[in-house]
Every structure is written in structure tokens, then in C-alpha cells.
Amino acid sequence: MGRITLFGLAGCLAASAIWAQPDNRTIIGSGNEFLSAGAFAIRMSQYNEGIRLTQLGLTRYQPSRTDRAAALSNLCAAYAAKGDPNVAIDFCTQSLEIDGGNWRAYNNRAYAYYLKGMYSEATFDLDAAAAINSDGRQIIQLRGMINERGLRPRVIMEDHQ
């Protein structure tokens, strides 16, 4: 389940972070080929390649603030997917410093916190993501994962007779 979720988180994030347009058009290769190729690689679970391409996209081009924020969020997703939540959190935080309205960056950082067992922080970020996009499938999925780890179930039975 972890791998599937990871793919879902990273993949969705990567795809729409680079390609999503304000009017929801999907434009492949929106000017920064490295960022697009990096996003695609991350979606395909080729995290190292995705990281390499995304970093090239950040250095070889002069991406806009929005693209830079999205690219950093993708790096966050890739590092989280690789199981390196500390690096992931740094990238997500950088992304959110540039663009505080990106729900995917909050969602990715929430996942990184989840990997570290920091469920309060994960929930806090997840709430922020949900405030921006309440219908995000990844948000619902991740909240379920956090609840499974962070909630202790109890059943109290009482007989009446």
C-alpha cells in the first residue's frame, strides 16, 4: 500500500505541478523541457532520474516563481518517495515559501512528516492542503494513512440484563 500511495502522491503532484494551467488545460512541455521530463520520470517512479532532470530544469532555465515552486514541490515528492523525508521537507518548505497556495506541496510535506512519524505536523499540513483543495484524492488517502497510525482504537462493551 505504501508504494502505491507513494506513487499516487508523487505522480499526481508531479503531473499537475508542471503541466496544470489555471484553466485546467494540459499542455505537455510548457517551455521547460527538463521540468516536464523530470515530472514524468517521477510519475514513473524513476525518482533519481526525476530529481536529476528537475534540478537541471531549475538551473538551466530561468523558471517562473510558480514553476520553481512546483519543481521544488516535485523534488520534495521524489525524495519522500525515496524514503528521505528530511530532504523532502526542506524542498517542500522552500516551495511553500515561494508559493504558499500549492496544496500539493503541503500534501507532500505531510507525507514526509508521516514517514517520520510526526503525525501532528502531518495533520497540520494536511489540513492546510485540504483548505485549498478539499477534494484531493491524495489528501483523503493520506489522512486515512495518518489516522491508521495515529489513532488507537478502543471498543468498550457493556451488558444490560
Binding site: 489513532l151 462493551m157 444490560h160
Partner: peptide
């Protein structure tokens, strides 16, 4: 009666 509750860890 069954009371189902969740406690935050």
C-alpha cells in the same frame, strides 16, 4: 452496548 472510540496517539 458497544462504544467505538479513537484515541489520538
Amino acid at each position: 452496548s458497544f462504544a467505538y472510540s479513537l484515541e489520538r496517539i
